[in-house]
Design a protein around this nucleic acid. Sequence first.
DNA 1: TTATTTCTACCTGTTTTCAGGTATTTTTGC
DNA 2: GCAAAAATACCTGAAAACAGGTAGAAATAA
Lengths: 211, 211
Amino acid sequence: MLTDSATLAIVDDHPIVLEGLQRLLSNVKGITISGCFTTGTAFMSFLKENKVDVLLLDITLPDVNGIDLCKEVKSLSPDTHVLALSNHAERSMILQMIQHGATGYLLKNISSEELIACIREALSGMITFSKGAREIMARPSVTELKGIPQLTRREKEILHLISDGKTTPDIAAQLNLSPLTVETHRKNLIQKFQVKNMAALIKIAAQQGLI
Amino acid sequence: MLTDSATLAIVDDHPIVLEGLQRLLSNVKGITISGCFTTGTAFMSFLKENKVDVLLLDITLPDVNGIDLCKEVKSLSPDTHVLALSNHAERSMILQMIQHGATGYLLKNISSEELIACIREALSGMITFSKGAREIMARPSVTELKGIPQLTRREKEILHLISDGKTTPDIAAQLNLSPLTVETHRKNLIQKFQVKNMAALIKIAAQQGLI
DNA sequence: TTATTTCTACCTGTTTTCAGGTATTTTTGC
DNA sequence: GCAAAAATACCTGAAAACAGGTAGAAATAA
């Protein structure tokens, strides 16, 4: 039994989703659900004692964020295949998860057949994506093409203040800087994001969860 | 049977959620699931032929937005109790749904017991919220205190263009308007949102999902 | 058919932002 | 300790945004 049935665990803070996944997967040959968890910490302590072949992982959890959890899982148990299961339909998010060791990325609007197929693919050691996720990967949007620019501490700080409606003189006064310095940071931000003005930048930053 | 068992329909584009809800509610006394739909239009055509006592409605659907659908449902069938079921944990969203006729608002991290209790409450004609939703309602955040201002079609259009980095002259040219007119809309937007400038406005708009 | 909202357009003047640089001093990482 | 990155600061001029109005036409709702 151990040889031909894979163990699967689910981490999701939504009982409804947990129920749905259990129902969908309970009668699938070759897959045994060994645990369902609503928090990352609960799963991690389970993982210390049990072997898990596949983990279906919701990225947005109450206690830890999915990317960090994925990293932890992979360092504790490198053979566990982590399948991110999420509503986040952003390219950057998918890339980040893969970068941190996830074996695949499934959008929550996945169909049951697709879900099972993806789990099988993951078990055989392949990277796998749901249909929706593949589509997103296929068409890098203009804003996401460059990825999220790396911002310095000061730049983030100033971006926040700008998004709160503060003007350059305001910010300079608040941070005890020359207005000219603030202007320089502003310019660098616009350059880094490759946008025309702050309005466009703040939209992207907000959508990317930066502010 | 018609007198003591309430009919319930579910609209959600996530098969997993649909499965979970069906499973959770299938054996509940007094509730009969009469239909599950993944699109708003599919449900609307069902509603024209069938009586639905309670609708569990996911706000984010592929074809129509939940607020509009809720309005449609209530105007076609005022006796249907609409329970919004969503991941949107924003006060403004909850208020908007209630304003448009919803009987309650449930966050998707709701427990099964809570879900059933809420459906029962809705059936008895009461407004109902999940625990999480009640918490959000309890603490109005600073930005959300004023609610989302009602924007006109033109204002939304111009707000979008601004958030794409377009300047007033750009927008005027694109919409065949006087730049002065665009400026007026701009001013009205800033007044409606009670902010100092567009940077602050766009942050709020993005966070509220307006852009 | 009113009344109200929305859309349109105008005016004046000030403030802020943006584009195009250059350049020194701190930090930080190796 | 040295190189690279980050933070600081400066300059000029043009373009855009904002503040504070007013006001007529058009569309919508009551």
